[in-house]
Design a protein around this nucleic acid. Sequence first.
DNA 1: ATCCGGCGTTTGTGATCACAAGCTGAGCGC
DNA 2: GCGCTCAGCTTGTGATCACAAACGCCGGAT
Lengths: 218, 218
Amino acid sequence: MTEDGAAGPAHERVYKVLRRRILQGEMAPGEALTLRGVAGELGLSMTPAREAVRRLAAEGALAISGSGRVSAPVLTPQRIEELASIRALLEPELAARALPRAHLSLIDRLRRMDAEIDRHLRGGDAAAYVRGNLEFHRTLYLRAHAPAMLALAETVWLQTGPSMRALYARIGMGRVADYHRKAISALAAGDEAGLRLAIREDVRQGLTLLISEGLDAA
Amino acid sequence: MTEDGAAGPAHERVYKVLRRRILQGEMAPGEALTLRGVAGELGLSMTPAREAVRRLAAEGALAISGSGRVSAPVLTPQRIEELASIRALLEPELAARALPRAHLSLIDRLRRMDAEIDRHLRGGDAAAYVRGNLEFHRTLYLRAHAPAMLALAETVWLQTGPSMRALYARIGMGRVADYHRKAISALAAGDEAGLRLAIREDVRQGLTLLISEGLDAA
DNA sequence: ATCCGGCGTTTGTGATCACAAGCTGAGCGC
DNA sequence: GCGCTCAGCTTGTGATCACAAACGCCGGAT
């Protein structure tokens, strides 16, 4: 296996595959994983699979039971509220730091991304919507040049991934308001307070929806 | 090796040992680690050592070079500023959430801890000071019942650990003001705004000291 | 004296194996 | 019919080994 399409060490590949899967909601809350299963699926031995799984567990993206069993975490409403609060703290700050560095090209790019998100929304493609939404936020926050803060935010996204999937699978995406437009306007106008508010609302909405719609289904 | 004093799986023990070492500043920024070294030191094979090291790397407590070499991270001033900002966001929130649940017994305990910290400060015992300081914060934040937020805060502490050591080793601990007393007073008075302010100042002070005192020494 | 090339050694990576603990389900007894 | 028990299998854990890449040192050329 000298070259099989992806770069980097094997454990890194496993990590990326699982991470994408979790982030985009392809994994249901409570769903179990086995090391041998993951390893076999990618044609590797257990060793790199274990490293990737433990790394994700360290980030809170996977839960490990007392006996070492691995599964996607099932979030309690309190936990969801907590994660929403963290996002509401970190992400407005990230947006505010990106504000002074936001050139027109970035704003244009965000506008295009938002249009595509809308398309997915109306088309009912939940997976593409979630993916686009995260990409929108990450694109904006990258301009903040605050890697540690961004990493923390992504950690939180990772933790909410499986539950978001369960949410959209159950209730559809009918009533998602779009705060992205408000955020883009504030960004273009250089209005920091407005930007912070728009991001905070955007973040809150997704997760309060999650709380109000009851507990996770297994 | 059926029983050697500590509980849990081997990789967990390694993790805890290394984590404590980093958190309490027993490791200099840039200092290198080898898997075989860690494993040998604890009388284990490389496998659990690798898991523990990678876990800490995932939390930002250790840095891995492109070729897999492991070392304590060397922080740039920008990075320190960023970490300080994160602490200034998360920790006042944690304190505020702990406020309504803070009984007299907790306040008493914090007072005692602060007195001991002062003792270490005057005695010049930097390691004990750092340890006591972290314990003070953790004790308070535990009352917030916000495990995800606390975990994020601890992640940041972990990242600043080695650099803090370098700081106190170089400049001593002469001019650390004590915001702990202000925090305790605000806590006792139920003054949320005052508590938030005191914690923010406490957090800022340590890390701005780190910035102003120049780059890390190897 | 300094810089560069080459080699031995160190170090991380991944596969395989032995083992113990946990889970599952079938069969028995009440 | 319901619950318990025990055997078999699944699963995570940790050790060991083979291998390749990176590091560091030493000697020679300029």
